[in-house]
Simulated scan of single mutants.
Amino acid sequence: MGHWWERNILEPGKLPLLLALGAFVITFVVTRVITRLIRAGRGPFGNVKAGGLHIHHVVPGVVLTVVGGFGAVAADRHGAGGAVAAVVFGVGAGLVLDEFALILHLDDVYWSEEGRKSVEVVVLTAALVGLLLAGFVPFGVNDMTQEELQDRGGVIATIAVNFLFSLVCLGKGKARLAVFGVVVPLIALFGAVRLARPGSPWARRCYRRRPRARARSVLRAYRHDRRWSGPRRAVQDWIGGKPDPRPVGAAHDR
């Protein structure tokens, strides 16, 4: 275990990344526990207010992210300063992304259906950072041999092809596959060769005169959503709490 830690974490300088990821996940979990207790009216916690203004935790999150980010840039990643800056950045990022939906909609949608986007972004971010921590390099350059890495043309071609696959996934309305495909190329390839989702730019342009392809796209999307939307919502509710049944425009007091 000690040899693995030294070889895979300390020597490559990944300790700050590990600390940032740990602080990010822990901050998100603790924040969600506290907000759910506030929502249920339990515990000693309450909303932070200043002069009647509700201070959302995205505000201190932005401050911590800025401080931790600049601190990480200025510090040595192998030193104690880099580790402290990484923890500060992780805490700030956890607070900010926990209210990602609020930033996106410019409205307090924390406990609404739109608030699920915060949970999705947090899970997606944690998964991507975990892949980077495990050694996956964006665009699959880590899959190349040493001889291929020495060939600059081969590296550029690999990056270009994988980036193209990710763009195709994005154009087909498969944002999650596009994001993960940047790190794991086979995921992008899988999404690129399959039918586009209805309503995506690819479907509107390429299926306009292909009624069969358009119908297959709609049917496949319907079957996919019917199969996975329920489990996905259940996991999101377990992680972030069940959305409030009130209208999106209503006030959401935490």
Rank of each mutant, 00 (worst) to 15 (best):
W228R: 10
R216L: 15
V123M: 14
R7S: 09
A178G: 15
A85G: 11
A74V: 08
T145H: 03
P60R: 03
T158C: 06
S229R: 07
P60D: 09
A215S: 14
G43R: 01
L149I: 14
D143F: 12
D253G: 06
V122H: 05
G199D: 05
L19W: 09
R194C: 10
L149D: 08
V235Q: 08
D98Y: 03
V62G: 08
A196S: 13
P198E: 09
G61I: 07
V73W: 08
A23W: 00
L128G: 01
L21H: 06
V155D: 06
V168Y: 06
T31Q: 07
R212L: 15
R232Y: 00
A72I: 02
S166F: 04
G199M: 07
W5C: 13
K117Q: 11
T31F: 04
P211S: 07
F89E: 09
V109H: 05
V67Y: 04
G135T: 03
V96Y: 05
V119Q: 05
D244I: 08
A75S: 15
L124V: 13
A50G: 01
L37E: 03
R208V: 11
G46M: 10
V30F: 09
G68Q: 04
H78P: 11
L64R: 10
K49L: 03
L133V: 10
D253V: 02
G71A: 08
L133D: 10
I34T: 07
L149W: 06
L219Y: 01
I187V: 15
E11S: 07
G199A: 07
H105I: 04
S112V: 02
V218H: 11
G82W: 00
A234K: 12
Y207L: 15
S166M: 13
I187L: 14
L186M: 09
D225Y: 12
W5M: 13
G240V: 07
G90L: 04
F180Q: 06
P201Q: 00
A215D: 09
P231H: 14
E114Q: 11
V122A: 08
D98F: 04
R197N: 15
W5D: 07
A23P: 03
C169S: 13
G81N: 03
A75E: 05
A80V: 13
V66A: 14
G115A: 07
L95M: 10
S166A: 15
F163Q: 12
V48M: 14
G135Q: 11
T65K: 01
N8M: 03
D108I: 00
S166C: 15
D151P: 03
T65C: 10
H105C: 14
T65D: 03
L133Q: 08
V183Y: 00
V121T: 07
R212I: 08
